[in-house]
């Protein structure tokens, strides 16, 4: 059953890719990219989970209760920031593209071919 936690990451990634492949709206494409990215958070944190572990904060140095892996959390944190900033940049591009091209439909963006 616990295998499903990891498989969920793969499913979410594919769902995001599916959305991007079928998208008729560039803003939606960017949104689907954000969905695909959330798969990485799920995988990282699932990998770092420790049965019976608590969150990795300590109030004093004597108690050493088992805690979950702090490294993947730091990685996921970085990942969240990276994802948000890239999404913002891509949305800025999409916004300007809509203004200049008058469309958000990838089928109608024919400026670069061949």
């Amino acid at each position: 059953m616990t295998l499903l936690f990891f498989l969920a990451a793969g499913w979410i990634f594919l769902a995001g890719v599916y959305g991007m492949v079928t998208s008729r709206n560039i803003i939606r494409t960017v949104g689907c990219l954000a969905v695909a990215q959330s798969s990485t958070y799920v995988l990282l944190l699932a990998v770092g989970f420790r049965r019976g572990g608590t969150s990795p904060y300590f109030t004093d140095t004597s108690t050493r209760t088992p805690v979950v892996d702090p490294v993947v959390q730091a990685l996921a944190l970085t990942d969240v920031v990276v994802g948000a900033t890239v999404t913002a940049l891509l949305l800025a591009l999409a916004l300007q593209l809509r203004k200049r091209h008058g469309t958000v439909d990838p089928d109608a963006l024919t400026g670069l071919r061949g």
Partner: peptide, 14 residues
Amino acid sequence: VTVTATVAALTPEP
């Protein structure tokens, strides 16, 4: 998470 992600990916309207 899986269900909302799937729905988000399938929602056509931004």
